[in-house]
Design a protein around this nucleic acid. Structure first.
Length: 141
DNA sequence: GCCAACGTTGGC
DNA sequence: GCCAACGTTGGC
């Protein structure tokens, strides 16, 4: 079981949109590193849902329900002719009682080395189990 | 709205 | 294959 962090601008697709739809395709990733992370996701993995730009906070949790498959919103092909970009399906799990802001993460010693802080532009990032647990615990406190 | 950081593109 | 130019992202 792995943990991830997926980012979205709430203007485009927010946690409440996912809540309404229950399950959604996580499409539109056009960055190799992010795509590699998508492809490494396994069914049952949990994802922290982060709102970028507006809020700048982790707001909820989603679960991977379908492992990577070709992103239907792209027609680009890789050199070998296979579709270039991938997507996964995620399901709404929960909304954090207390969102964890980026500011708070930076102030927390055990979280300040998160990929979110170090490489803020990456839209799909790995999260350590310890980081995940810390965030969930903080969101309940 | 600005700008720094980063990834990608394309000329050489 | 290098690197300058350019575009995009996201925090402030």
């Amino acid at each position: 079981m792995s943990y991830w962090l997926i980012k979205s601008e709430p203007d485009t697709f927010s946690l409440s949109d996912l809540k309404k739809q229950k399950t959604s395709m996580w499409e539109g990733v056009r960055n190799y590193q992010a795509r590699n992370n998508l492809q490494a996701m396994k069914k049952g993995d949990l994802c922290l849902f982060y709102h970028s730009n507006i809020g700048k906070e982790i707001v909820g949790i989603a679960e991977v329900v379908k492992e990577h498959y070709p992103d239907p919103t792209s027609t680009e092909k890789a050199a070998d002719g296979t579709p270039k970009w991938s997507t996964v399906s995620v399901k709404f799990i929960s909304e954090l009682k207390r969102p964890i802001t980026l500011e708070k993460i930076k102030q927390t010693t055990s979280l300040k080395d998160m990929v979110l802080v170090k490489s803020s532009r990456l839209s799909v990032q790995p999260v350590k189990a310890s980081e995940y647990k810390t965030i969930v615990k903080m969101s309940e406190a």
